[in-house]
């Protein structure tokens, strides 16, 4: 037998058990300190624990590594703690939101939510009565119509900015960036003044979608622009060198190559508008019954339902609002994951 067969696979670059134990004890000491400090001083709440914990952890880590391994290891340890703190600051609110929505929302969930509307019920009725159907259908139609308007416009804007690079590229880039900061209520008021008062004079889902498109186009255009810029120039040159016109090269080579990124742009656009309340409130009203026609009559939507239920303020209505938030969140999440999976499956094959 050669010696090679006696060798066991090892990972000498990883921390040993002893080092791990030491790190864990430093961790525990820091936790104990934070507990003690919060108990001994007038500081209160969970955030105080987090702050004191990270502060004491970085100090302990620094001195421990300074003594055992020198100054650069000590700096490294502090940097690691700071990064971990940053991650917590970024992730905690999201986890907290998800947990709260789930904890409060699941009590209001029942099958009738997806089969009934609120035509015969008020939001203060017992939770088992009435449902979200009108809001679900309304939100879906609002988002789909907005998507049909915004997706081609957004992608074509991005194509203009990355492929055609015409004379108006800079002003358009500037406008798109400025537009992505437009408050949603302003978009709603604009459509109200530009379309509803002079033309339609009534609530409808379509005008709501118009306002949502104003919010959606810049998001799609900016994301698509970044995605199209990532496509290597080689591909454009190859397309043109084969005798394709610029337009056909963009349509057949560049855009398909960017497909998964463009799907992401679409998802971000939908995520941007799915929860918008203000323009919907102004323009689509908020019916309590199913209305599948975007061109006439008030149209319900999930954000509107949430706002209305929550503002009533009874125990039942607030539970309804949380249930609707949970449904909205799950829909956006499912959409996000399925679009991701779809685009990845196509590119990985």
């Amino acid at each position: 037998m050669s010696t090679a067969t006696l060798m066991k696979p090892q990972k000498p670059w990883q921390a040993s058990t002893q080092q791990r134990l030491i790190s864990a004890s430093v961790f525990l000491v820091a936790a104990a300190i934070s507990y003690g400090v919060v108990a001994a001083t007038p500081m209160k709440g969970k955030l105080a624990y987090v702050f004191v914990f990270f502060a004491s952890l970085s100090v302990l880590d620094f001195f421990f590594h300074l003594v055992t391994r020198g100054i650069s290891a000590a700096k490294d340890a502090v940097a690691r703690t700071v990064v971990a703190f940053g991650i917590c600051v970024a992730v905690l609110p999201i986890v907290s939101i998800l947990a709260t929505v789930f904890m409060r929302g699941y009590k209001g969930l029942h099958f009738g939510l997806f089969t009934h509307d609120m035509k015969l019920n008020s939001v203060s009725d017992p939770i088992a009565q009435g449902g979200l159907l009108h809001a679900l259908i309304g939100s879906t139609i609002l988002v789909l119509v907005a998507l049909v308007i915004s997706l081609p416009l957004g992608i074509l804007t991005a194509v203009y900015m990355t492929e055609i690079r015409g004379r108006f590229m800079r002003p358009i880039k500037f406008l798109v960036q400025a537009m992505s900061g437009v408050p949603s209520i302003v978009a709603g008021l604009f459509i109200l003044a530009a379309v509803v008062y002079p033309l339609t004079k009534s609530y409808s889902g379509f005008v709501g979608s118009l306002a949502l498109s104003i919010l959606m186009i810049p998001t799609i255009a900016r994301t698509s622009e970044e995605v199209l810029l990532l496509i290597p120039n080689d591909l454009r040159e190859a397309g043109v060198a084969l005798g394709g016109t610029q337009w056909r090269t963009v349509a057949m080579v560049v855009v398909p190559a960017a497909r998964s990124g463009l799907v992401t742009a679409m998802i971000l656009g939908i995520a941007r508008i799915a929860g918008e309340t203000a323009p919907v409130l102004l323009l689509s009203g908020g019916g309590d019954q199913v209305n599948a026609n975007p061109f006439s009559g008030p149209m319900g939507s999930l954000p509107f339902y949430i706002w209305k239920s929550y503002s009533v303020g009874t125990e039942e209505s607030i539970t309804r609002a949380w249930a609707a938030i949970l449904v909205l969140l799950v829909i956006v999440l499912v959409l996000f994951i399925s679009a991701r999976l779809l685009s990845e499956r196509r590119t990985n094959k």
Partner: peptide, 19 residues
């Protein structure tokens, strides 16, 4: 485009269309 049809080109880096 007719010129480029008659004069084909192969580039330094292989660039098949990924899609």
């Amino acid at each position: 485009t007719k010129i480029r049809l008659k004069i084909g080109m192969v580039f330094q880096k292989p660039n098949p269309f990924p899609s």
